[in-house]
Each structure stands twice: as C-alpha cells, then as structure tokens.
Amino acid sequence: MRVVSKFGGTSLGNGNRVNRAADSIAAVVEQGHEIAVVASAMGSTTDHLLDSITFDADEADRAEIVSMGERTSVRMLKAALSARGIDATFLEPGDEEWPIITNAWGEVDVEETKARAKVLADRLDSDVQIITGFLAQDHAGNTTTLGRGGSDSTAVMLGNYMDADEVVIVTDVEGVMTGDPHVVEGARNVGQITVDELRNLSFRGAEVIAPSALGYKTEEFGVRVVHYQHGDLLSGGTTIEGEFENLIDLRDESLACITLAGRSVRNQEGVLSQLSGALAEQEINIDAVASGMDSVTFYVDEDLTERVETLLHDVVVTDDRLSSITVETDIAVIRVTGGELPNQPGVISEIVQPLATAHINVHDIITSATSVALFIDWDDREEALEIVQNEFTH
C-alpha cells in the first residue's frame, strides 16, 4: 500500500506532537507500506512570519521568508524518523529532486510535476520522502507558493501523481463532524462524505480540507481526515469519496415554476417550512427554491403542476401572510457544476452575457458554492445549452 500523509501545523505544534507524528509514520513503514509525508509549518509559524514582514517585500522575498516554517518542519520530522531507525529524505524548493513546479503564471506545470512525482514514488520502497507543503518552485528555480490551503493541495496532488492508494490528512479535528462541536452539543464524526458535499461545506466555512485540494481527488485513490491524537494513519476519521467533475447538464424533463406572493414573506417565520412541508407530506420532490422579499418560488416536475398548485393554494387561503399563487410552465434548467464557480469573479457574467446577446431570457439563477443553475424557457434550451458549453469548454 502507498500512502501520502499530510501533517498540519497543529499536528506538528510542539516536540511531543512531532514525536507522535514520527511514531505514526514509523508504524506505517514497519507494517511494510510505502509512505510520503507532506509537512506544514509548525503551529502558527507561517502567520508569525507573515506578521513580521512589516516592510515592502516583493513576492519572491515573501515566498522565501514564509517558506522557513515548512523547511523547519521537514527537518524536524526527518530527524525524528532517523532517531527511530527509519530512512528518510526531506525535500524543499531548490533541491534537484523537488517535485512541484509552477509556470510563468504561478500555475502548477502538470506534466513536469507528474514526471517528478513519479521519480519520488519510485524511491518510496527505500526510504520515506518528506516534502514541504504549501511551497512550489518555478522553472527558474525561484520559490513560489500554492496559496491558501496549499499544504492540502500538495498532499492530494502528490497522492494523485504518485499513484497513492490513499491520502491521509492529519489535523486537529476528528474528520468531518455533523456540526461544529464547539457550538453543537452531541456533534459526531461522519464516517464517509462525498467530494461534492465536502466542497460545498468547505466553501461555506468548514475548515477540514482546503477546497482547492479536492480538485486533485480522483476515484483512483482515497482521501481520509484523521485527528493527530489518533496515532494510526491507516484507520479512523472521515473518508472522502468520489471525485469532483465539471459538468454542464440539461435536465431532461420540463419544470413548472410556482410562485407564491406575500408581503415581506422572507421575514415571516415558518412560511417556507409550511409551504415545503405541505409538499413533503405528499412526497413531492422540489427541484429548486428561490426567494425574494415578497415571494417564494418552487420548481417542480411539470407533470405535478396541478397537484402542487392545489396543495399550495390551500396554504395561501389559510395563511393571511400569503396573498396569491401563480404558475408558469415549460421551464428548462441548465446546471453548470465544477471548480469554485461562484467564488470566481465574473463567472455569472460569463454565463449570462452570451445568453443575453442571443436574446435568451433567464428566469432565475440559483447558485451554490460549486454550481450555477439557469432557468430558461423550454424552447430556448438547446440553443442555451450550446452557448453555455461553448463558454466553458474553450
């Protein structure tokens, strides 16, 4: 079995934790497995270094300064493993065997990095490779960085390019929890979660694994998150399943758009629950929900239009906060899924502007952390799909 394990700053926060990390790595080696290690800066070293740059430093100097945290960590781990009789080699930018190369635009040079990662993978049968997380190197030999969450990206990227069986992210949480344990009493560990679910949580504040790292995850290898106190790299924690795909999908069936009006309905407690509850009781699926200050819109299968209208009208006539219901049919939905869509400046404009140029009306736009849903006239669906595909595949 081949493992890439990333140790976060907290898991290397002091000498005792470095020893704990070294013990867990040594246990993997002693069980006959291959392991590469990605190390973050110890504790809050990177933040302290950044706070110390109170002068006007250029990007190259800043990268060199902040790299000192990771450079210290790999030396600590190498020494701790050597003390346990484990052969290990640490790698940092500037080394001839350094794997992660960026191009002139600061993006990972995939082909060059893959080739270098393969060389490292071939050495895992003789010793542990310890790599500085977060850091990269351009073709001129200058130190660069992978940005926020870069150590996670380093680990999952190398797991991918080194043909690892599993990437283990060692951090200060018990994997993914049902809720924030500092806020929610009784929060428990989630044994499995999909890449899609986790990426949406990550973009909305869950600090488990950097969203940018999940882009390197494929079906070919697993990713697992464990607590540093667990001590066992080969079990426990939360397993992240699947891979994130970039998709442009046109729903096969048409939808009905059912809108309920009510004065300041968004500020009325329980209205949305009452409306959706009426549909849930009849086992009617809601494809999407949109809301304004004075309205709530449900998108449902067009075949269910009359049934849904009747159910929701019964709510309208019994609830003074609602005034009327209206229905529009022959609605198509195109969903663009992938990457960090709503977090990319201008991405909504890139989708909508070409449709406006083609005089295609967009009824609604609903976004999440990783997708954009466009609701349009059914008759415009094929032309709109072609336009959106051209924008995101070229």
Rank of each mutant, 00 (worst) to 15 (best):
S371A: 12
D319N: 15
E241K: 15
G205N: 05
I258G: 08
T318N: 15
R116H: 04
A332M: 01
D125M: 06
W105A: 11
T337L: 08
R224V: 13
T144G: 00
E34C: 10
I325N: 06
L198S: 08
T89G: 00
F90A: 06
T297K: 08
A60P: 01
I366Y: 06
A290S: 15
R321L: 08
M177W: 02
T132L: 04
R188H: 13
G338W: 00
L49R: 04
N267P: 01
V195D: 06
A140K: 13
I284N: 04
M157I: 00
V38E: 05
R62H: 03
E309F: 10
A278F: 05
H227F: 13
I101N: 01
P342N: 09
V108G: 00
I286P: 14
G215K: 01
N361D: 14
V108P: 02
A356V: 09
Q229V: 05
A80N: 05
A57S: 05
E34F: 11
I169V: 15
R224L: 11
V168A: 09
A288R: 12
L233C: 15
L374W: 08
V184D: 03
E92A: 05
E185I: 06
I53P: 01
L311W: 09
R188K: 14
A41W: 02
L312T: 08
K6N: 11
A117H: 01
V176Y: 00
S323W: 02
L385D: 11
H48R: 13
G175H: 12
Q282Y: 11
D287F: 12
A290K: 13
I25R: 14
R188M: 10
L250G: 07
N285W: 05
N160P: 03
V156S: 00
E309W: 04
V352E: 07
D252C: 02
T393A: 02
Q353L: 07
G32N: 09
A155Q: 00
P345F: 11
E219W: 05
W378N: 03
E283D: 12
T239P: 06
E245R: 15
G262P: 02
